[in-house]
Amino acid sequence: MHIMEGFLPHPWWEMWFIIAIPFIAYGVYKLTKITKKIPEALPLLALMGAFVFVLSALKLPSVTGSTSHPTGTGLAAVIVGPAITSVLSLIVLIFQALLLAHGGLTTLGANVFSMGIIGPIVAYMIWLTCKKMRLSNSVGIFFAAALGDLLTYIVTSIQLAFVFPTGTGFFNAFLKFSGVFAITQIPLAIGEGILAVMLFDFLAKYKGQLLDKMKVIKLPQSKTVQETAKQ
């Protein structure tokens, strides 16, 4: 969904920046807090960033002035929370603009809003809902990653439809853009969901304690008691 450099004209790119800034500011505040409290979480945060970078660099061209690719922000949102994910996405999107000429600096606001803010928030809400419904972690992660990915593309379609209207109105333009995205994006979203489930299982197995500390999953009570006794 990286909208190309310069694809959004004058009032729109500034507007998306203004909308994205409060979320980013809150994310930076959260990030500073968590790195002070749990310094050993920093490598995991950076890894999530690199993961988002690699996944969203696997792009397929799309005729909408942007590209189609997995986002990886759904899994990141579940593990590090949507606020920090927005900062990670900002950094990743700047790198992609500078290193791969993918996306752009002026469209950063719009891209961060779709991939770093709405996608992760939706993914996180789905994850919380699934947890409340006592569904298994795998089901929750799958839906969070897949739907978070799709929502990102719906937001991008809305952003493009504002800029390029048709005679029959905004909704028609939105349908045209989202229709083009849907062809490539629905299979990608399902693939991303499966990948996220696999990775989350790995992480829970090897880094369960860290995830427990970051309040992502709850380890069985007996184990945590044992560990506090050890310390």
């Binding site: 930076v28 990030l31 500073t32 790195t35 920093l42 490598p43 945060l45 950076a46 890894l47 960033g49 690199a50 970078f53 690699v54 900062v87 990670l88 900002l90 950094i91 990743v92 700047i94 790198f95």
Partner: peptide
């Protein structure tokens, strides 16, 4: 500062 540090780490991790 946190953004710059995290960026450096992410850059290395890529």
């Amino acid at each position: 500062k946190t953004i710059v540090e995290l960026s450096l780490l992410i850059y290395r991790y890529i």
